[in-house]
Amino acid sequence: MFTNNPYAQGGWSNPANPHSINNGTWGSQSPPQPSVYGALPHAVAATPPTLITFHFVAFSPSILNCSVVGPQGRKYYSVSTSSPNVGASTLFYNPEGQTAAAIEWHQQPTVEVRGAVAKQMTSQWMGLSSDRSYRTMEFRGKWYAWVPRDSVISLFTVGPTPPELLARVCREKDSVKLEITAQAVQAGLLDAAVVAVVLLHSGRNFG
């Protein structure tokens, strides 16, 4: 089922190199704290926090049409894409049937997360670092980083304190698994993380 490389889709040039993240400088859309990432290996090696697991399942035929299932098998989101063509929209519905987020697949795709991320280009919301080794993400005035390492893409905090692991994403046989901390969920990051996972595994170029 999975025939595409999410690192290539995401624009990362060398995800196999765990040290490449330290070789570049922040782009214009990124926070000016490159020295923080020297601590990443220590953050990864530390005892991981308790993670809540969600699975993207029932692909039809891809993650652009799927269900997101959480603890106790509860459906948290339905992801629906209107067509495979440019100009189509991917909508994220919560259990109440309300639209939680949307991606519009123009030549320059846009993204919006209800109540948290104003409509903007996906390339701006999840911008590549200058060395193309990770992506930054702004959410409610705070910066985060999606960092690929081996077969896992991890979400870290960015700031004056050492990076903190908030989520990680990996492929499984018939699904994509998102593990996210309770702290991140309480901070409202679940919607944004779900949208980011779909972007990263969409098989489409989003900037």
Rank of each mutant, 00 (worst) to 15 (best):
P95H: 09
P95C: 12
P95E: 11
Q98M: 14
T99E: 15
T99I: 15
A100H: 04
A101Q: 04
A101T: 03
W105P: 02
H106L: 09
H106P: 01
H106S: 06
Q108D: 14
P109C: 10
V111K: 01
E112A: 14
R114Q: 14
G115D: 15
G115P: 00
A116Y: 13
V117E: 11
M121Y: 10
Q124W: 03
L128T: 10
S129E: 12
D131W: 00
D131F: 08
R132L: 15
S133D: 03
Y134C: 06
R135S: 06
R135D: 07
R135F: 04
F139H: 11
K142Y: 12
A145N: 09
W146E: 05
V147D: 01
P148S: 03
P148V: 07
P148M: 10
D150G: 07
D150N: 11
S151D: 06
S154M: 13
G159R: 00
G159T: 02
G159I: 06
P160T: 13
T161A: 11
P162H: 10
P163R: 04
E164V: 00
L165D: 01
L165V: 12
L166N: 02
L166I: 04
A167T: 02
V169S: 04
V169N: 01
V169R: 03
V169Y: 05
C170N: 08
R171L: 06
E172V: 07
E172T: 10
D174P: 00
D174M: 09
L178H: 00
